[in-house]
Nucleic acid binder design. Structure first.
Length: 465
RNA sequence: GGCGCGGUAGCCAAGUGGUAAGGCCAAGGUCUGCAAAACCUUUAUUCGUCGGUUCGAUUCCGACCCGCGCCUCCA
C-alpha cells in the first residue's frame, strides 16, 4: 500500500516514495533555543517522529536533518540580559530540548545541525545569490530581492504582485526596496555576535541557515521538508526563493506542515497561564507517554485541543492497551490457533496500516487497534483465542508500538519485581485462609506504591500504574 | 481587505453521495469473597443554520452564523 501525504506545495494528497527508491532525505525545522520547548513545539516534533517511524516501517532508510537555531534576535537579547555569550545561553536550552525529546521518545534525527556551525556555508550561499543578481546591499546588510524570483508565493499560494491593502508592513525596515524583501545577512552591530565572512562582517538572517544546511547534507532537492504550519510563510517560502534561485531545481518534493494546538480551547500564551513545558506537565504527574499519546491521537493537520481531561483520557486509553498486552502474556491459552481470530488480527493490521498510509491518520489507526482489542478480549473471555493468536496479537501490538511507542511505562523506581511477588504470595496465603481483611490490606498497600493487582481465573496478575 | 482552516454525542475524534469508527466519561448488567480487569446493554433518527442539486447529502453547490489561523516574530 502506498503512503499518501498532503503536500502544501500541490495542495493535494500525493503518493510518496523517496526519489532514489530507498532513502528518504528529510529536513525538519527544529527549535530556536531561547527557552524551554512548550507543548505546542512538542506537538510538531512528536508528529515528525511519527512521520519518521512510519516512513521507516515502509522499509525506507532515513537521512533526516534537524536544525537548531542558536543565533537570532531573541537569543542575542536574552543572552545579553543575562550577561552571557549566546553560546553559554543556548547550550542549556539545547540540552534541555534534547532531554525533552528523549523523554517523549522522539527518535534522534540522523543529524542535528546548529546554525552557528554553518556560518561559512550560509555566507557561501549568499555569495552565489549575489553573483546571480538576487541580492542588494543596504547599510552593509544583504537583502534578497523577491521581484527577481518569479516563483515567489508558490508554497503559500499567495500572489505578491501589486498592492496589498491592509497588510501590515514593518516600518523599521525602511531600508528595503520592497516590503516583501528579506534580510540574508545583517551587518555587524556593536554588542552583537558577528562573523567575518566573504559577504562581510555580520550575522545571518533567519532563513538562510535552513537552505544552507539542508543542501549541504541532503542535496539540492529534498524528499520531504517539514515544519509547523506557521512556517509556510515567510520562512519556507523564503527558503525556496534562496535555494531554487541558486540551483534552478525544486528545493523539496514534499512540504509537510503540522497544525498548531490549543490549550483548554484557548490559544496558548504566557498571559493566559496555559503555556506548558514538558517539565511542568511531568511535575503535575503526567507521564511522558501520556502526553505523547495525546499529541499523536489527533491527526496532524487538525488543530489539537490539549486539555487536562484529554490527558486523563489518554492515560486511561494507554492502560487499556497495556492491560490487553498483559493479558496476552499471562492468560493460560490452549495450543494452536483459532483461524477466525487469525484473520481478524490480519484485518486489524491492514486497517491500521491503511489509516497511517492515508496521510498519517492516527485517529483512524487508533480506532482500528481499539476495535481489535475489544474483539480479542471477547474472544479471550470466550476461550476462542489460542496461544498462536496471542503471538499474532503481540506482533500487531509491536507494530502499533513501533510508531506510537506508548506501551512501555516510564520507570520511576519503587518496589522490585521480587518484592512485589513476595507480597502477592503472602496475600494468596491469606486468601486461602479466608483472611480477606489481611489480603485486602496487602492489596491496598501495594496500590499505594503504584502496583495494581487483578485476580483472574489463571491466578494473580499485577502491573505498575 | 487578501488567502486559508474548522464547527459530528457530556469531552476528544474518524468518516463517507446510500443512511454515523474509536477513545474517555456516565448508567445498568455478567463475572468476583470484595475489588480490579474484561465483556454485554444504554448514550447523535443525527453531523452549525437555511436553501439548492440528487431517487437519496453529514458528505456536492450557494448563502449565512460561529470559532480560529496566516498576511509581522512564532511549532
Amino acid at each position: 500500500m502506498a503512503l499518501h501525504l498532503f503536500n502544501t506545495l500541490t495542495q493535494r494528497v500525493d503518493d510518496f516514495t523517496p526519489s532514489d527508491g530507498h532513502t528518504v532525505r528529510m529536513y525538519t525545522c527544529g527549535p530556536t533555543v531561547y527557552n524551554y520547548a512548550h507543548i505546542g513545539n512538542l506537538r510538531t516534533f512528536t508528529f515528525q517522529d511519527l512521520l519518521r517511524r512510519w516512513l521507516r516501517s515502509h522499509g525506507w532508510q532515513l537521512d533526516h536533518v534537524m536544525n537548531i537555531t542558536d543565533v537570532e534576535d531573541k537569543i542575542i537579547r536574552n543572552a545579553a540580559a543575562e550577561g552571557k555569550t549566546i553560546f553559554e545561553y543556548t547550550d542549556g536550552y539545547t540540552k534541555a530540548f534534547l532531554e525533552d525529546a528523549a523523554r517523549l521518545r522522539l527518535e534522534r534525527p540522523e543529524r542535528i545541525a546548529k546554525a552557528t556551525d554553518h556560518i561559512r556555508e550560509m555566507a557561501g550561499l549568499i555569495g552565489q545569490l549575489s553573483a546571480k543578481g538576487y541580492t542588494y546591499t543596504s547599510d552593509g546588510s544583504v537583502y534578497y530581492r523577491i521581484s527577481n524570483f518569479p516563483g515567489y508565493g508558490k508554497l503559500s499560494h499567495s500572489d505578491f504582485g501589486g498592492i496589498r491593502p491592509g497588510a501590515r508592513v514593518d516600518v523599521d525596515e525602511y531600508e528595503k526596496d520592497d516590503a516583501r524583501d528579506f534580510v540574508l545577512w545583517k551587518a555587524a552591530k556593536s554588542g552583537e555576535p558577528s562573523w567575518d565572512t566573504c559577504v562581510g562582517n555580520g550575522r545571518p538572517g533567519w532563513h538562510i541557515e535552513c537552505s544552507a544546511m539542508a543542501m549541504k547534507y541532503l542535496g539540492e532537492t529534498l524528499d520531504i521538508h517539514a515544519g509547523g504550519i506557521d512556517l509556510v510563510f515567510p520562512h519556507h517560502e523564503n527558503e525556496i526563493a534562496q535555494s531554487e534561485a541558486v540551483t534552478g531545481k525544486p528545493f523539496a518534493r514534499f512540504w509537510v506542515h503540522s497544525e498548531h494546538l490549543f490549550v483548554e480551547s484557548k490559544k496558548m500564551s504566557k498571559s493566559a497561564g496555559n503555556f506548558y513545558t514538558l517539565r511542568e506537565l511531568e511535575a503535575m504527574g503526567h507521564a511522558p507517554e501520556t502526553i505523547r499519546y495525546l499529541l499523536l491521537s489527533v491527526p496532524y493537520r487538525q488543530k489539537l485541543n490539549f486539555t487536562m481531561d484529554g490527558l486523563k483520557a489518554a492515560a486511561t486509553s494507554i492502560a487499556r492497551l497495556r492491560g490487553f498486552a498483559l493479558r496476552l502474556k499471562t492468560d493460560r491459552l490452549g495450543d494452536g490457533r483459532d483461524e477466525a481470530m487469525t484473520s481478524r488480527t490480519a484485518e486489524a493490521r491492514k486497517a491500521f496500516d491503511a489509516a497511517l498510509d492515508d496521510d498519517l491518520n492516527s485517529a483512524a489507526a487508533l480506532g482500528a487497534i481499539f476495535e481489535y482489542v475489544r474483539d480479542a478480549n471477547s474472544a479471550l473471555d470466550a476461550a476462542a483465542f489460542l496461544s498462536g493468536n496471542a503471538t499474532e496479537a503481540l506482533a500487531l501490538l509491536d507494530r502499533f508500538d513501533s510508531v506510537f511507542d506508548v506501551l512501555r511505562p516510564t520507570s520511576e523506581g519503587g518496589l522490585s519485581d521480587a518484592e512485589i511477588e513476595k507480597r502477592i504470595a503472602e496475600r494468596t496465603q491469606a486468601k486461602k485462609a479466608r483472611d480477606f481483611e489481611r489480603a485486602d490490606s496487602i492489596r491496598a498497600a501495594l496500590l499505594e506504591t503504584g502496583v495494581i493487582l487483578e485476580d483472574t481465573k489463571d491466578g494473580v496478575r499485577w502491573k505498575r500504574k
